[in-house]
Design a protein around this nucleic acid. Sequence first.
DNA 1: CATAAAATTTAGACAATGTCAAGAAAAAAA
DNA 2: TTTTTTTCTTGACATTGTCTAAATTTTATG
Lengths: 138, 138
Amino acid sequence: MENARAKLRSAGIRPTAHRLAVAARLFGDRTHPTADRIWDGVREDFPAISRATVYNTLDLFVERKLVLRRALDSGAAVYDPFTEPHHHLVDEATGHVYDIPWGEVRLGAEPSLKDFDVSEFYLVMRGRRRAAGPKRKS
Amino acid sequence: MENARAKLRSAGIRPTAHRLAVAARLFGDRTHPTADRIWDGVREDFPAISRATVYNTLDLFVERKLVLRRALDSGAAVYDPFTEPHHHLVDEATGHVYDIPWGEVRLGAEPSLKDFDVSEFYLVMRGRRRAAGPKRKS
DNA sequence: CATAAAATTTAGACAATGTCAAGAAAAAAA
DNA sequence: TTTTTTTCTTGACATTGTCTAAATTTTATG
């Protein structure tokens, strides 16, 4: 993915080979991988890359908002290259995490609290796939 | 606390001394403690209680819906004895977790998804304590 | 270019969190 | 009581994440 290089640069990140390898693995991966899973993937191309480098790189990507990091009860945090605001649903049967587009849930209004300025919010849902009906692309 | 015993029994949990000790620590603690923090607390009364027992007991309490378990990006899962549906807000400055009563956020409707039966949902918000009084129209 | 400075990467130790299995102890049932 | 079931413990292990100091690479400077 050659525009990974452009993405990194426009985020002010120097596109080193390792960072590009992490980006290539993560951008476009909508399976909500954990950090160690990403590490496993990157090592197929860069067998010598260290765990710390992958963790550092992911932290950097999150800080620069190239990916989202979410903790969804599954033990390890997961990374999501889909950075538009969206919700998540955890399948109670399989543990699979689904992205739920923002528009698919009708929220009456943005949360407005008396004592806090809310900078970000999202729904975490738990549920089960409906028996019948059309299949959702995973 | 003597009604902890009743709570356990009505949940079908035999009220052993260890379980009562965990319950005494956790019920009424609205600070969102982690499992290890609860373990630390319980050991003040039962210095010999093992870590596994506390983890097992917490899992049991969660399964029987006596407490909620939430992962809020902070590394460790936290436990919340307030089991009515409610949201959470993480203070970006301090990491402190606040309970946000359900009624304090107006949601237009329950999330209704085409492909899933949603059994549970809640908001995770991130924000900062407001400096002065309320500024926004509700 | 040569050298210095800065940024990146590494290894590996360490910490924190969570899980598991096998046996001991306690409680309940027979 | 004896037997059976449940609970609890120990301690090892796995997973997840952080950190530091040194090595390497890249960039900046003379």
